[in-house]
Amino acid sequence: NQESVVAAVLIPINTALTVGMMTTRVVSPTGIPAEDIPRLISMQVNQVVPMGTTLMPDMVKGYAP
């Protein structure tokens, strides 16, 4: 099972992602793959992401799977 990126904290809208904001977990449905965390650093979320929420591609500005 592939791990997906999950919010480790509440991430406010338009916040640039940092390593500490993200964790990984096997979830269903799957979100952004864990191995993409290095690509996500400094990208901004386009909505509020509650802690424990799986990051989906459409939540991150400029992210393309």
Results as ranks from 00 to 15, higher is better:
T24A: 09
S42P: 03
P65Y: 02
Q47G: 11
I37A: 12
L10Q: 15
P57I: 05
L10K: 06
P29A: 07
G20F: 09
T15C: 03
R25K: 13
S4D: 00
A34P: 14
D58W: 05
P65N: 09
I37W: 05
I11T: 00
P50F: 04
V19S: 14
V27Q: 07
S4F: 04
P38R: 07
I37E: 04
M56F: 07
N46D: 07
A16F: 14
T18N: 11
D36N: 14
Y63R: 05
M56N: 10
M51T: 13
G20W: 12
A16V: 12
T54G: 02
V27E: 07
V9H: 14
I37K: 08
M22V: 09
R25Q: 12
A34G: 09
K61M: 13
V49H: 01
L40P: 00
G62W: 07
G62Y: 10
P33L: 04
N1S: 14
V27F: 02
T53V: 10
M43G: 12
T30F: 06
M22H: 01
V6K: 02
K61V: 09
M51I: 14
V5E: 00
G52N: 14
T23S: 15
L17E: 00
Q44F: 10
Y63H: 05
T24N: 10
P33D: 05
T23W: 09
T23E: 12
G62K: 04
M21D: 05
G52F: 10
A8V: 10
R39Q: 12
D58M: 13
I37T: 10
E3R: 02
P38N: 09
V6D: 00
T18F: 10
G62M: 06
T15K: 09
S28K: 03
L40E: 00
A8P: 01
R25P: 01
I32W: 03
T24I: 05
D58Q: 15
V45R: 00
T23L: 06
I32C: 03
T30R: 03
V49L: 09
N1L: 03
Q47L: 08
A7K: 00
P38L: 07
Q44W: 11
T23Q: 08
G62E: 11
I11Y: 01
N14K: 15
S42G: 12
P12W: 06
A7M: 02
D36L: 14
T53P: 00
T18C: 04
M56C: 03
Q44C: 03
V60H: 01
V45N: 02
M22Y: 02
T54D: 01
I13S: 06
K61E: 09
P65I: 08
L55V: 14
A34N: 11
P50D: 15
N14W: 15
M43Y: 11
V9E: 04
P65D: 06
E3H: 06
T15E: 10
M21A: 06
Q47F: 11
S28H: 06
I37F: 09
P33F: 11
T23N: 11
P57T: 14
P50M: 11
M43W: 07
N46G: 13
P57S: 11
P38W: 05
G20P: 10
G31T: 02
M59N: 04
I41T: 15
V19R: 07
V26G: 07
D58Y: 10
V48R: 15
M43Q: 09
Q44P: 06
S4Q: 03
Y63V: 04
I41P: 02
P57R: 08
V6H: 03
Q47K: 11
V9M: 13
Q2E: 15
P65L: 02
M51F: 11
Q2I: 10
V27K: 06
T30I: 15
M59A: 10
T53E: 07
V26R: 02
A8L: 13
N46P: 02
I13H: 13
Q47P: 00
A34E: 15
P57D: 08
V49K: 01
R39C: 04
M21S: 06
V60S: 01
V19L: 13
A8F: 06
P57G: 15
I32R: 00
T53A: 13
E3L: 04
G20L: 11
E35F: 05
Q2D: 15
T24M: 07
M59K: 04
Q44V: 10
G20M: 10
A64F: 12
V49G: 00
Q2P: 09
V60Y: 01
P29N: 07
T18S: 12
L17P: 02
A8M: 06
S42Q: 12
A64I: 08
T54E: 02
P29D: 15
I11D: 00
V27W: 02
S4I: 02
A34V: 14
R39D: 03
T53H: 08
P57M: 05
